[in-house]
Design a binder for these strands. Sequence first.
DNA 1: TAAAGGTTACGTCATTTGACGTTTGTGAAG
DNA 2: CTTCACAAACGTCAAATGACGTAACCTTTA
Lengths: 234, 234
Amino acid sequence: MKNEKLAIRMAGEISLAENPGVVIKKWRDIFNISQKELSRKLQVSPSVISDYESGRRKSPGTKFVSRIVTSLLVVDEGRGGKVIKEYGKLMEGTKFFEAILAIKEFAEPRKIKEIIRVSESEFLVGEKNLDNAVYGYTVVDSVKAILELSPLELSMIYGSTTQRALFFTRVKRGRSPLLAIKLTSLRPSLVVLHGIEGSPDPLALELAKRERLPLAFSHVDTVENLVSKLRELD
Amino acid sequence: MKNEKLAIRMAGEISLAENPGVVIKKWRDIFNISQKELSRKLQVSPSVISDYESGRRKSPGTKFVSRIVTSLLVVDEGRGGKVIKEYGKLMEGTKFFEAILAIKEFAEPRKIKEIIRVSESEFLVGEKNLDNAVYGYTVVDSVKAILELSPLELSMIYGSTTQRALFFTRVKRGRSPLLAIKLTSLRPSLVVLHGIEGSPDPLALELAKRERLPLAFSHVDTVENLVSKLRELD
DNA sequence: TAAAGGTTACGTCATTTGACGTTTGTGAAG
DNA sequence: CTTCACAAACGTCAAATGACGTAACCTTTA
């Protein structure tokens, strides 16, 4: 969907509220849509909306919440999307969240070779640092990260600790990820590429050598499996 | 709550998913919590969790979603908050969202005097520009905005259009809001203060004069009423 | 003062949820 | 080869949802 972030925010607020009806009303007011119009879109009678907002029904199911949120967004869209546009602007800051597939800080530091083992990876550059400490890892979708994020956001992806492993998935040949690392002056203690088609890019290798970055690529078949294998650590 | 943003995201994702159980499992996996442990925290039998994750029950109520999300967060907190910390970092970008109480772009431009009328305001500075055009408004909680946001975030609050009205609520005497405007070089076409206790700060008036900013203060009793009066515009 | 539009309040009823306990798979760890 | 822990699969049942329709209740506005 297009307004996913706003939708998630709305649905989340409604679900966490100790009185969901109040929050439903709040959003309906923001969108300036009457109970009647909303109910028409939802294909239910207006009293249903009222029952929720007034608190007779206290815990709408996710299906219902989802329908309400979607209806509000759809109606607004039909009116030119005024509300969506305004809020959309404000939600752009959360974009980079989507590029992050997994992130974790270890209780105990791990050695690079452990990360390599568990992620079924093979070294490309820098095999000397096998025992260096790694304090956590971040797995990013490199396509989303590189295409959609600003350099500032890119650097935010990377946690505060510097000694971390950085996994890039959906990598073609490894050029852009290494370039991105150079440009954002990130200093991960290990970079792992996943999903390489064919042979790694020579420039990528050269960059890794110059920056003295240990570089590896993972043989795990799918991104999901990579993530779940990593999760086993700690 | 402390991890509100993460909680909202989780609850929102679960609620919007066309199969909520899958998303519940996803988050349970991320937090590395077994069905059993989660069920203990939730005070239900483990099969309940399983029933959801496996899809037998398809649309959990908001109460249940809320309990699950909270339990996951609480368990993680008890373990030192590893996951929360990582994700928390990533959610900080959404902080400024909370400082915004209302925001809107008009279909047709309005005149300053209309904004003044509908918001029941009185001029402090700059009564000459009554007919200037205003293309939208933003209402911010000045305490949150000034205490919690960086200058960059502060300037993001302000929409893309420059000719907008900027409302500050929970204002003490108006000094900080005007200072913030000066420091972020915002150029609203109208600034309205709400909730002033006693007389406006002389420095605020001076700043407004120097910057040639039309400045007013609103008499509306509550923030809610101010927002709903503004919503009538358009 | 009616009429209109929006909202609340009920009464009713089929379908689901929320919950239990027990049983049946399924890997890892001994 | 067994155990153990985890998760899936049922069967069951009271309580709540999801839904309807109608009547009552406020504000505007004609």
